[in-house]
Computed example of a mutant assay.
Amino acid sequence: MYRILLLGIFIILSGCGSLDKQSILVNAGDTKEQVLNIMGPPDDRQFQGKNEAWQFCKTGAGFGYHDYRIFWFFDGKVTGVNTYKSTRPGVSCVTDIKPINWEDAPDVTLEIRKR
Rank of each mutant, 00 (worst) to 15 (best):
M1I: 02
M1A: 15
Y2P: 05
R3S: 15
I4E: 14
L5S: 10
L5R: 15
L5C: 04
L6Q: 12
L6H: 09
L7P: 00
G8I: 08
G8P: 00
I9M: 14
I9R: 12
F10I: 10
L13H: 08
G15Q: 13
G17R: 01
S18G: 04
S18Y: 05
S18Q: 11
L19N: 06
L19T: 05
K21C: 00
K21P: 03
K21T: 00
K21D: 02
Q22S: 13
S23V: 10
I24R: 15
V26D: 00
N27T: 04
A28K: 09
G29Q: 02
D30W: 01
T31R: 09
T31A: 06
E33I: 01
E33K: 13
Q34N: 06
V35E: 06
V35G: 07
L36F: 11
N37F: 00
I38Y: 10
I38W: 12
I38C: 11
M39G: 06
M39N: 04
G40V: 01
P41F: 07
D44K: 12
R45N: 04
Q46C: 02
F47Q: 10
F47H: 10
F47P: 03
G49F: 01
N51Q: 14
N51R: 14
N51W: 07
E52D: 05
A53I: 04
A53F: 03
Q55D: 01
Q55C: 02
Q55W: 05
C57L: 00
C57A: 02
A61W: 00
G64A: 07
Y65F: 14
Y68C: 09
Y68S: 13
R69T: 00
I70N: 08
F71E: 01
W72N: 05
W72V: 08
F73W: 03
F73S: 07
F74E: 12
D75I: 02
K77F: 03
K77E: 11
V78W: 01
T79K: 11
G80F: 11
G80Q: 07
N82W: 08
Y84Q: 09
K85I: 08
K85Y: 09
P89A: 11
S92A: 12
S92V: 12
S92E: 07
T95F: 08
D96Q: 15
D96L: 11
K98R: 15
P99D: 11
I100A: 05
I100Q: 03
N101C: 01
W102Q: 06
W102S: 07
E103C: 00
E103M: 10
A105P: 02
P106D: 07
L110Y: 11
L110Q: 12
E111N: 14
I112W: 07
I112A: 14
I112S: 12
R113W: 06
K114F: 02
K114M: 08
K114C: 03
K114G: 09
R115I: 08
